[in-house]
Design a binder for these strands. Structure first.
Lengths: 157, 157
DNA sequence: TATTGTTATACTCTATAACTATA
DNA sequence: TATAGTTATAGAGTATAACAATA
């Protein structure tokens, strides 16, 4: 008798659809990035910035799950394109915060519009099923977030 | 009156959970790759190979959605690690097919075991909800596959 | 001529570590 | 001394194009 309950065939089967969807969405994201002439990291960075709330470089590094050293280059290129802006902060002159420029805000909106729109087949599922799906995925997301080790920051915070 | 039916709030909300899940799964995949000392592309390549069916380099390029020129380097590194093998083909001497070595098969099994296991919260949803979820996601996956342009190969075939 | 895989080049991302200027 | 951001370096992925061998 196994020490851990092995998941049912149905659960594994349903989870495989999630895997397929993840692959397709990764592809969709890559396509959107290409269409807008952005790299994958640049697109992630733009999505991590809120128009209202400028973010220190180090926080962006956490969101991108990469070293602060790499963020410098990514931001350099975004800044050269006029999408973001480095700004000093009054209370601590070591810190530079990142803010979206007007064009950056437009670009971000364009990205979100292309990625946030649910596929027709999803909408067609109807409110009842969608509510159940949302509830299940909520629990799954919470579990995966908790399971994530601190080192795996990956967009944390 | 809008030309296209705008999706309901509930649908957009539920779809956002899918987006969060996609992000978390991307992170999980990256973590597994790091743990096994593989790059993201190397992990994708290993997942694209079937133990029974060797794949020509060009087909792998299609599966990875990248140029054949890049596959050469990715396969070089996998071959150096003894995970895959280039083999000639009788009927066309231009072609080299890729086959998993025994160690490659073991590595692939390790990857699949770590990624295919559904989270506890997913299993806990129960057969009824999981069936509905599988049905909806099936339709969504089919739609996204169809919507994909030829250039967006991204694992096609 | 067209195709398969390789080679070459230039750019981006990543990890690591040393460096600066602040604190 | 510790922290925020930069710089430097090396390995890997990507796009593009030219190339060799084969079809």
């Amino acid at each position: 008798m196994p020490p851990v309950q092995s998941p049912s065939r149905g659960a594994v089967d349903a989870w495989r659809r999630v895997g397929e969807l993840v692959d397709l969405e990764r592809c969709r994201t890559a396509t959107v990035a290409r269409e807008l002439d952005l790299s994958a990291a640049q697109l992630l960075a733009l999505r991590a910035l809120k128009p209202e709330r400028p973010l220190p470089m180090g926080r962006l590094a956490g969101a991108l799950e990469c070293d602060k050293g790499n963020v410098t280059g990514i931001v350099d290129r975004l800044e050269r394109r006029g999408l973001v802006e480095r700004r000093p902060v009054d209370h601590d002159r070591r810190i530079k915060v990142l803010a979206l420029t007007d064009e950056g805000v437009r670009m971000q909106a364009e990205i979100e519009e292309r990625l946030q729109t649910p596929p027709a087949a999803f909408v067609a599922a109807g409110g009842d099923d969608l509510e159940r799906i949302a509830a299940v995925l909520d629990a799954v997301v919470a579990e995966l977030r908790d399971a994530r080790e601190p080192g795996d920051a990956c967009g944390a915070e």
